[in-house]
């Protein structure tokens, strides 16, 4: 699963860079947008694959847990992926503190970080769109080459000519 995600990250990241290298602000805005997706996907990859391997390399690394995984095996079917055992969403089922919660649920921290990131990118997106509108109203163009020719403001407040 990590491999799939890595490929997705590679593609979205590449496309967003391609868009951002373009010559038009709208494309650049879309690139920034897509970049958010790429970053979020790469962060969620850090939580590790949700699929529980009962055999192979992953199983040997998984620590012995007190939680009876096997009892819940039936419930641990993903609605889409019926064929595999899979970790649960990070919602606790009971109130007792668990010794190793991450054996049964996925790592919640990357999810929290991404949630923050999504909401922030909401603000960023709106801000970016506003900038687009304001820029196009003031300069009547969104092409980078034309915008770059706008004169830069001169700094003020030089030394006194004594």
């Amino acid at each position: 699963m990590t491999m799939v995600l890595a490929i997705c990250v590679a593609v979205t990241f590449g496309v967003s860079i391609y868009l951002m290298l373009g010559r038009e602000l709208k494309g650049i805005a879309m690139g920034v947008f897509l970049l958010g997706h790429a970053a979020n996907l790469s962060i969620i990859a850090m939580s590790g694959s949700p699929i529980l391997h009962t055999h192979g390399a992953e199983a040997s690394r998984a620590p012995a847990t007190l939680e009876p995984i096997s009892e819940h095996l039936d419930e641990q079917r993903h609605p889409l992926m019926t064929g595999v055992n899979i970790k649960q969403p990070p919602v606790l089922e009971h109130h007792e503190p668990m010794t190793d919660p991450l054996a049964t649920i996925v790592d919640p921290l990357p999810q929290a970080l991404i949630l923050t990131a999504i909401v922030i990118s909401f603000g960023v997106m709106a801000f970016l769109l506003t900038l687009l509108v304001v820029t196009s109203r003031r300069t009547h163009t969104l092409a980078i080459a034309e915008l770059a020719q706008e004169p830069a403001p001169e700094p003020d407040g030089g030394p006194a000519q004594a």
Binding site: G123, A126, L129, T130
Partner: peptide, 9 residues
């Protein structure tokens, strides 16, 4: 925030 943005945009 969302409402403000919808208002303006």
């Amino acid at each position: 925030v969302a409402a403000g943005m919808i208002f303006r945009l």
